[in-house]
Amino acid sequence: MALRMDNMGIVVDDLDEAVAFFEILGMELEGRGMVEGEWAGRVTGLGDQQVEIAMLRTPDGHGKLELSRFLSPAVVSDHRGAQVNALGYLRVMFAVDDLDSTLARLSAVGGVLVGDVVRFEDAYRLCYLRGPGSLLIGLAEELG
């Protein structure tokens, strides 16, 4: 059986800001568009919906992120401020070549370090940060 993860979806309140943030991280915009109508609502169970989406991919082409801004129906809950030990989907982790320069780029556009940059043995340097709309992302730099 073949299995490949296609993408991870994140609902945002400001699509332009989120796209710009992830482009600064190094992702590439594949496209933007509207997903709307009865057919889409049958997939999500939301009925008639109108959603603006942007699809981004990692430079290697293997990872994708779908950012969605719901125009209708309205967003019903907000768990962006949840701590790292909350149940459910929480964050996406990105492998980066240079953690310090990535943090500097993202901090310049509002990214905020959650805790500390830590070293896990001789394997990784890791951190979490909050991006646009308080989205939680992780960064990992593989060492030697």
Rank of each mutant, 00 (worst) to 15 (best):
R42H: 10
V43T: 08
V43S: 10
T44V: 07
T44I: 13
T44E: 11
T44R: 02
G45E: 04
G45A: 01
G45T: 00
G47Y: 06
G47A: 12
D48P: 02
D48R: 07
Q49G: 01
V51S: 06
E52L: 08
E52C: 04
E52Y: 05
A54G: 00
A54P: 00
M55Q: 07
L56K: 07
L56Q: 00
R57Q: 14
R57K: 15
R57L: 04
T58M: 13
T58A: 12
P59I: 07
P59E: 11
D60N: 05
G61N: 08
G61E: 10
H62G: 06
K64H: 14
L65E: 06
L65T: 05
E66M: 08
E66K: 04
L67H: 02
S68K: 12
R69N: 08
F70G: 03
F70K: 10
L71W: 11
A74I: 10
V75P: 03
V76T: 14
V76K: 15
V76Y: 11
S77R: 13
H79T: 08
H79P: 06
R80C: 15
R80F: 14
G81I: 01
G81L: 07
Q83F: 11
Q83H: 14
A86H: 15
A86Q: 14
L87S: 15
G88S: 05
Y89H: 09
L90G: 04
L90Q: 02
L90E: 07
L90I: 10
R91N: 12
V92R: 02
V92T: 06
V92M: 08
F94V: 03
A95N: 06
V96R: 02
D97T: 03
D97A: 09
D97W: 01
D98V: 00
L99W: 11
D100S: 09
S101W: 10
S101H: 12
T102E: 10
A104E: 15
A108S: 14
V109A: 14
G110W: 03
G111H: 07
G111K: 03
V112L: 10
L113A: 14
V114S: 09
V114Q: 11
G115S: 13
D116W: 02
D116F: 07
V117Y: 06
V118D: 13
V118Y: 04
R119D: 09
R119Q: 15
R119E: 14
R119G: 08
R119Y: 01
F120R: 13
F120P: 10
E121I: 01
E121A: 14
D122T: 09
D122Y: 12
D122H: 14
Y124K: 06
Y124P: 01
Y124G: 00
R125N: 07
L126Y: 04
L126S: 06
L126Q: 05
C127Y: 09
C127D: 13
Y128R: 05
Y128S: 11
L129V: 01
R130A: 09
R130M: 11
S134H: 00
S134P: 05
S134V: 15
L135Y: 00
L136H: 00
L136W: 03
I137P: 01
I137G: 01
G138H: 03
L139W: 02
A140P: 05
A140T: 07
A140L: 07
